[in-house]
Each structure stands twice: as C-alpha cells, then as structure tokens.
C-alpha cells in the first residue's frame, strides 16, 4: 500500500483547511507543531477524513488528538499502512 509522504500531507492539509498566508508551508514542516502551522483539531479531523478516503487508513479521533507534528502524523499513518500490508 502507498506510503503517505510529507508532500501528500501538505496537499491534504491545504485542501482541507487552507494555508496561513503568513506561513511558508513549502519549507521543512516535519517537526513544526500543527498549532504553530495554524491547524486546529477540526483541521486535523478533516484531514484525517481525507486520508481515509484516499489511503484507506482509519485514524481514530483519539489518535488525531494526540498527534502534534506532521512527522508524528506520517508515522501513525504509515505504521497503519504497514500493518494493513501484512
């Protein structure tokens, strides 16, 4: 199953919740906090729904609530894709 890359996540975040005009999302955002990037819990729920639609990975609301950075979110998704592939 396809792995979710940072470029995919960036695209999904912007599609689901727009982008902050004062922030450059094209830079290295892997370890930025979603809070600093301007994505609140609703933005992440919306993004999680999109990830499920596109990648078939079902992230629980509890998981989403605990994820603080794009790196952590990618790890969560890709661990699931690895599990799903087994």
């Amino acid at each position: 199953m396809a792995q979710l890359a940072i470029e995919d996540l960036r695209r999904i975040l912007i599609a689901c919740a727009g982008e902050d005009d004062s922030l450059d999302l094209t830079g290295d955002i892997l370890d930025s906090s979603f809070e600093d990037l301007g994505y609140d819990s609703l933005a992440l729920m919306e993004s999680a729904a999109r990830i499920k639609q596109e990648y078939g990975i079902d992230l629980s609301d509890d998981d989403i609530a605990e994820v603080e950075t794009p790196r952590a979110l990618l790890a969560l998704v890709n661990a699931d894709t690895a599990t799903a592939a087994v």
Partner: peptide
C-alpha cells in the same frame, strides 16, 4: 479572506 477561512 485568508485561504484558511474558505474551506469552513
């Protein structure tokens, strides 16, 4: 409006 507000 900022793009952040458009999806919502």
């Amino acid at each position: 409006l900022p793009s952040r507000l458009l999806p919502q």
